[in-house]
Design a protein around this nucleic acid. Structure first.
Lengths: 107, 107
DNA sequence: AAACATTATCGCAATATTGCGATTGATTTT
DNA sequence: AAAATCAATCGCAATATTGCGATAATGTTT
């Protein structure tokens, strides 16, 4: 196989897993942090800051965009990427709810 | 390639990425939730509850254990898995700090 | 219009992940 | 001791991810 059998799990479990997976790479963490500090920047800026090629960074941006964590706004030839405030707040809430739901322990 | 170049990123970014990655699968979310509700159970119980094979669930348990999110205690032939309260609290803190660090927006 | 800047995408290779059945090793039960 | 239970691991196949260079597509400058 190799593909996650997401149809076997709840919407909720899939949603938080998808968000966590999107965050689950150091480059994407670094991208999110940089977007937060700069309050939005273009891909080229990230290429200057991160030790990865342009095509690789573009792919990570795509992954974050598909998960709904960031968004891009066209500004002529450039695209200004920034954290999507709405969905990022939702993401935060999902994680908070998840961690609150656990808070138990142990054998 | 195919391998993440983690040596190029900060300890902190790698740590949260590793934790997020461990959580980034619906089966592992479901496992964590079940361990929380039952306050610990054996692999066989998870096999009864989840629509995956024993070997697959065993692998997911291994992944969660390696990330430090859960731990296993030998009880004769059985192994009682439960959330590791210490590291889980740390995980929660990491995510809280990460989300707090962002809380900005946008272009 | 030509040169340039910017970013997405394609094609490729290497590696990782997901999932399963079968087997193994260990403990319990009968 | 034999049979049964439990969970880890091996081996395999399918798919996904990571990363890069090259190219394409679009807009900007000169």
């Amino acid at each position: 196989m190799g593909a996650t059998k997401s149809e076997l799990f709840s919407e909720e479990d899939n949603r938080i897993a998808t968000l966590a997976k999107a965050i689950g790479h150091p480059a994407r963490i670094a991208i999110i942090k940089h977007l937060a500090v700069t309050k939005g920047c273009i891909c080229g800026d990230l290429v200057d800051v991160l030790p990865l090629s342009q095509s690789t960074i573009s792919q990570h941006l795509k992954a974050l965009k598909e998960a709904g964590i960031i968004m891009g706004e066209v500004e002529g030839a450039k695209i200004c990427y920034c954290i999507n405030p709405v969905t990022f707040a939702q993401t935060k809430n999902y994680f908070e709810a998840f961690f609150a739901e656990i808070k138990n322990c142990c054998c």
